[in-house]
Computed example of a mutant assay.
Amino acid sequence: MSPKSQTVIKDFFDPETWTYTYVVYEGDGSSCVIIDSVLNYDPKSGRTQTRSADEVIGFVQAHQLKVNWILETHAHADHLTAAPYLQSHLGGKIVIGDHITQVQGVFKGVFNLDERFKVDGTQFNHLLKDGESLAFGNLSLTAIYVPGHTPACMAYQIGDAIFVGDTLFLPDVGTARCDFPGGDAKNLYRSIQKLLSYPVETKLYMCHDYPPDGRSAQCMTTVGEEKLKNIHVHDGVTEEQFVQMREARDKTLEMPTLILPSIQVNIRAGHFPEPDGNGISYLKIPLNAL
């Protein structure tokens, strides 16, 4: 990153899935990245809409930004990604962490996908390794491997900000669940400690916020605030205490409403399954499998 470059972060909130999408750039006319986009999906009708993604497109075009990278922090279980739709309108390459192949392998079995579905990550344009950097204009990002919520989660550091995905939430909400296939509470604790080892003023940008009554949704906190106030993992909470709490809490949680459609689409980098002979794409609903 150039010493004179400044990072501008624009957030977009999708109230239906409580998801934050980010556009990160240097200024009008600069290169940018998009992090964790949303394709609107109605589970009752099976119809998709693009209003959330269109808001992002409108912003990018209004500021004359050039999209270099469309990033996913992980294969989300609570919303569908709009990455291919954004790419078709704005360009850029779709990127996720290289451990996505583990998630693909697990869910290929869960959904009994045929040989056309590859578990090598080739649905994405680029697979990031831990510590790898990507440039966009005068800015750059560095990948931080943070498994636990899933075995393939990546956080992205850009300047003094880290986009943490589902690893952490706001201090009054706590931390991500670990009961999806491949999730692990011990790994999550260690990933969180990795993030909390950054300077206390480091800004942490959430993928979601689920605010308690009386608080509006917020997208950002700091390492210092998390260490002081996070209800699940503040300073002094041991790994053993965290794992006991997290595993007990996860047993009480319902599955996310959109987990079955989301995972099937997101392990394909946002592309729908190949259409049947009638030209319609279908998603599978495995009965009594999860």
Rank of each mutant, 00 (worst) to 15 (best):
180 F>H: 13
181 P>E: 04
182 G>V: 10
93 K>E: 01
44 K>A: 14
119 V>M: 15
155 A>K: 10
216 S>R: 13
283 L>G: 03
151 P>M: 13
262 S>V: 06
161 A>F: 02
164 V>Q: 01
194 K>E: 03
200 V>I: 06
137 G>I: 09
95 V>H: 04
280 I>P: 01
20 Y>D: 04
281 S>R: 00
277 G>A: 03
14 D>H: 08
109 G>K: 15
27 G>Y: 11
208 H>R: 07
233 V>T: 09
60 V>A: 01
229 K>Y: 10
202 T>F: 06
232 H>I: 11
75 A>F: 10
270 G>F: 02
285 I>S: 15
193 Q>F: 08
81 T>D: 03
50 T>F: 02
157 Q>M: 04
96 I>G: 01
254 E>P: 10
108 K>Q: 01
139 L>H: 05
232 H>P: 00
119 V>W: 11
217 A>Y: 05
110 V>M: 12
260 L>W: 07
90 L>C: 09
43 P>N: 01
103 V>K: 12
278 N>P: 00
58 G>M: 12
40 N>H: 08
174 G>H: 10
7 T>A: 07
154 M>I: 13
181 P>C: 10
156 Y>T: 05
100 I>H: 11
92 G>H: 00
259 I>K: 11
136 F>C: 00
62 A>K: 12
204 L>K: 01
111 F>R: 06
19 T>E: 06
271 H>K: 15
115 E>M: 14
140 S>E: 12
229 K>M: 12
289 A>Q: 15
194 K>S: 04
111 F>V: 14
189 Y>H: 12
15 P>Y: 03
2 S>P: 04
279 G>W: 08
225 E>A: 00
73 T>G: 08
277 G>T: 00
34 I>A: 05
